[in-house]
Computed example of a mutant assay.
Amino acid sequence: MGADSPGGPLAASAASREDNGSTMTLPASPASPAAPASPPAHRPLATAAAAAGGTKSECTAERSVHTLASTVSFAQLKTLLKAAGDRVHSLLLGSVDGDLVLTLPLDGATPPPPPPASKKRRRDAQAEEVELSVHKLRQAKVSDALLATAERAILSVLQLRDAQEPDEEVVDAWGLSAATQEEASTRPKLILAARIKPFHAVWLKRLKQALGDDCFADGLITTDPSMASHLELALPTTPATRLAEAEGQKSIILFATVSERPPP
């Protein structure tokens, strides 16, 4: 992670592309005996969301909802996870009407257990596709340590499911981008990218766990499609995704620096 940026090299790259806004102080609500107090979980999240460039925070009896900036670094996501306290496993991340939205259900909802490993041929096909992509990068002289980390992270991210429909896959495209010899001093050696389909939400804690410490140390999520071309890592789109985006919805794209795990 770069010393000059709290979000690391990828976040610094995003900052050079887009100003996410300075820290915003939420105005205090006027005192009113008729106004119900916000649940204790709402205020820390609202403060953290505002510090990350968030544009709006609202709270109802059912949920605490925060509209974030279009691009948020992993460092900022870690702060949001910490702000959720003991409700961290209930945080949901999704896109609503083109906005990146963080939601905390206040009814105690928690994610169901991960689905058991499927024996369908589709799982084998996914693993083979990942293995082939990794093999191509090995020929490009990317280190075995980086590739092993990337392969594990991709396979874990592909297991993510929709928060409301536990059988529904949410990732419709992924990719790996290795730095050329000329780029080695200006960008991470290996970047992992994945697209979360519009109309889907994921448990943020599970997304972090899927990436693992090696891939969640530096990176960002964004609803800005131009970020992919800025980082020179374009992802294919499915017809369903193109249709949703044509109607004003947006995918969530994540970019993660793949880090080598230090030897034990």
Rank of each mutant, 00 (worst) to 15 (best):
Q126M: 10
Q126L: 14
Q126S: 07
Q126P: 02
A127N: 10
E128Y: 06
E128P: 02
E128F: 06
E129R: 13
V130R: 11
E131R: 06
E131V: 03
E131T: 05
L132Q: 14
L132R: 15
L132D: 13
L132E: 12
L132W: 12
V134P: 01
V134D: 04
H135L: 12
K136G: 05
L137A: 06
L137R: 13
R138H: 13
R138F: 09
Q139R: 11
Q139L: 15
A140S: 10
K141P: 07
K141W: 12
K141H: 14
V142S: 05
V142I: 14
V142Q: 06
S143M: 14
D144P: 05
A145T: 12
A145P: 07
A145L: 10
L146C: 06
L146P: 10
L146V: 11
L147S: 04
L147G: 09
A148V: 13
A148P: 09
T149V: 14
T149S: 12
T149F: 05
A150D: 07
A150S: 13
A150T: 10
A150M: 11
E151I: 03
E151D: 11
E151T: 10
E151C: 06
E151R: 10
R152E: 15
A153L: 02
A153C: 05
A153K: 04
I154Y: 04
L155V: 04
L155Q: 09
L155P: 06
S156M: 11
V157G: 01
V157W: 07
L158W: 06
L158H: 04
Q159S: 14
L160A: 01
L160M: 05
L160S: 00
L160Y: 01
R161G: 00
D162A: 00
D162K: 00
D162T: 00
D162N: 00
A163D: 03
A163R: 03
Q164F: 07
Q164K: 08
Q164V: 06
E165T: 12
E165Y: 04
P166L: 05
P166I: 03
P166V: 06
P166G: 01
D167Y: 04
D167W: 08
E168C: 01
E169N: 05
E169R: 07
V170W: 01
D172P: 02
D172N: 05
A173T: 02
A173K: 00
W174A: 01
S177Y: 04
S177Q: 09
A178D: 01
A179K: 13
A179R: 10
A179H: 08
Q181L: 14
Q181A: 15
E182A: 15
E182T: 11
E183T: 02
E183W: 02
E183D: 09
A184R: 15
A184W: 06
A184Q: 14
A184S: 15
S185I: 12
T186W: 09
T186I: 15
T186F: 13
R187L: 05
R187N: 05
R187I: 09
R187K: 12
P188H: 05
P188Q: 03
P188S: 02
P188W: 09
P188K: 10
K189F: 10
K189G: 14
K189N: 15
L190S: 01
I191R: 09
I191M: 08
I191Y: 04
I191Q: 08
I191E: 02
L192E: 03
A193R: 04
